[in-house]
Design a protein around this nucleic acid. Structure first.
Length: 116
DNA sequence: CCCGTGACCGACT
DNA sequence: CAGTCGGCCACGG
């Protein structure tokens, strides 16, 4: 199955076979983030039942082998910053802005209505 | 099994 | 407000 054919969560799970349960949980949760919204490494960690594994979540999203099926660009730091190297960060910032998420001072304005 | 590696986080100075 | 610092943890070598 091609990555571009992934439509449902089940499709994603099939493609994710062979991955770690932790990685599957991270990608599956990220997959659910709707356009126009964002989440943070910390929030994802809580959602998958590993509230203190936010750092490991970042490592996993950094790989992001299934982009753009899995919208890894919608996950930012807890203060709204786009982390990582300048190139990737600025790229994600463009995408997020195009999706209609408010950005101020180069950071996402993290309000309840924009957080997933 | 130990160790280095981060797209981290929150507290503290 | 800008740095620093200690704690955190899955993963691969």
């Amino acid at each position: 199955m091609n990555i571009s054919d992934i439509k449902t969560e089940q499709d994603l799970l099939d493609v994710l076979k062979g991955y770690t349960t932790f990685e599957r949980a991270v990608y599956l949760t990220t997959f659910k983030i709707p356009r126009g919204k964002v989440s943070t490494y910390s929030r994802i960690a809580k959602k998958i039942g590993h509230p203190k594994a936010f750092r490991a979540v970042a490592n996993t999203l950094n790989k992001c082998p299934l982009w753009p099926v899995v919208p890894c660009h919608r996950v930012v730091a807890s203060d709204g910053r786009f982390t990582g190297n300048e190139k990737g960060a600025s790229h994600r910032r463009i995408l997020i802005r195009d999706e209609g998420v408010p950005i101020k001072g180069g950071k996402v304005v993290l309000t309840e209505d924009v957080l997933f």
